[in-house]
Amino acid sequence: MRSLVVAVSVFGMVSAAQAADLSDLPILRGGLTEGLANSRVNWDGYYVGGQAGYGASDEKFSGSNQTMTAALLANTAIESAYGVSQWPLPFGKTTGKTSAFGAFAGYNSQWDDVVLGVEMSYMHGSFGGTASASMSRSFSTPISGFYHAVTSNAASSISISDVATIRGRAGYAMGSFLPYAFFGLALGKADTTRSVSVDDNYAATYAVAVSSCNSATPPFCATLSAAEGQHNRLIYGYSAGLGVDVNLYAGLFARFEYEYVRFATTVDTNINTVRAGLGYKF
């Protein structure tokens, strides 16, 4: 009887010890995700990585050709009387979508669970758009004895191939996860083109001025035009967004991020991208 009691006691102690050891496995303490969340990661230090994503750019061309039209019509009667360069040409807004790829590098400084840092991010893609607009008006008030029917035409385009951002980051470490927000300066390399033309039909009577133009007889026809292009132009803006870094093994981590960039140039351009990346912290 005593031997039976001793055997049962020993078996109970061994079972308890085995249960205690098994309870240390992450999968038995709530699964792998909980294990990642409970593990503590050191985010302090330098890091580099690569990234790829998908984005959309929105361009507002309204007003992009006003200064060019004003220069074209400087000291003309129709500009002085009718303010042609200020006409609200109906450009509207364009949207383009593209894939992109690039790299990032930065430095983190960690205090307990708070992580602050500075980072440079680069993406190469094909952002931008093209738009054109036209507006015609006729005027019943003559200038120096002539009535005018004026048409203003304009076209504009922007193509942004490279976007780099310099940002400050602030994050909060939650085990193997580092959610963060950022804000900073954005730089872009862009090609832009603009063209304008103004057609002025004029005659001694209003009815003739608004009729079809024929160079042989009134209404008389006058056309002024100009065009310009700028290549590899440096443009400026700002960047903001949210993301999360996930520690995978040792210094290796994955990244998931959303970024908003705005370039307030002659063409107001907004770029929204989502991207995934893989990095290594030294």
Score class of each variant (00 low, 15 high):
residue 113 D to Q: 11
residue 213 C to S: 09
residue 72 L to A: 07
residue 124 H to F: 06
residue 199 D to I: 13
residue 44 D to G: 00
residue 266 T to M: 08
residue 226 A to I: 03
residue 96 G to Q: 11
residue 158 I to M: 12
residue 21 D to P: 03
residue 241 G to Y: 04
residue 109 S to C: 01
residue 76 T to V: 08
residue 47 Y to H: 00
residue 22 L to F: 06
residue 148 H to I: 06
residue 261 V to N: 15
residue 92 G to K: 02
residue 106 G to T: 01
residue 93 K to F: 02
residue 186 A to K: 01
residue 10 V to A: 15
residue 37 A to V: 15
residue 3 S to I: 11
residue 143 I to G: 08
residue 124 H to T: 03
residue 13 M to H: 05
residue 180 Y to T: 01
residue 261 V to D: 14
residue 61 F to H: 11
residue 135 M to W: 07
residue 58 D to C: 07
residue 69 T to M: 11
residue 186 A to E: 02
residue 268 D to H: 07
residue 133 A to S: 12
residue 217 T to K: 09
residue 203 A to I: 02
residue 207 A to F: 07
residue 209 A to P: 01
residue 113 D to R: 07
residue 107 Y to N: 00
residue 1 M to C: 10
residue 198 V to W: 04
residue 193 T to D: 14
residue 197 S to Q: 03
residue 135 M to K: 05
residue 191 D to H: 09
residue 190 A to V: 03
residue 180 Y to D: 01
residue 99 S to C: 07
residue 108 N to D: 01
residue 90 P to F: 09
residue 248 L to Y: 10
residue 193 T to L: 04
residue 171 G to L: 15
residue 251 G to E: 00
residue 103 A to E: 05
residue 253 F to R: 01
residue 73 L to N: 05
residue 243 G to S: 09
residue 71 A to N: 15
residue 272 N to V: 04
residue 155 A to N: 14
residue 179 P to L: 04
residue 4 L to K: 14
residue 30 G to I: 06
residue 244 V to A: 15
residue 133 A to C: 06
residue 238 Y to F: 15
residue 165 T to P: 02
residue 212 S to K: 11
residue 134 S to Y: 07
residue 97 K to G: 04
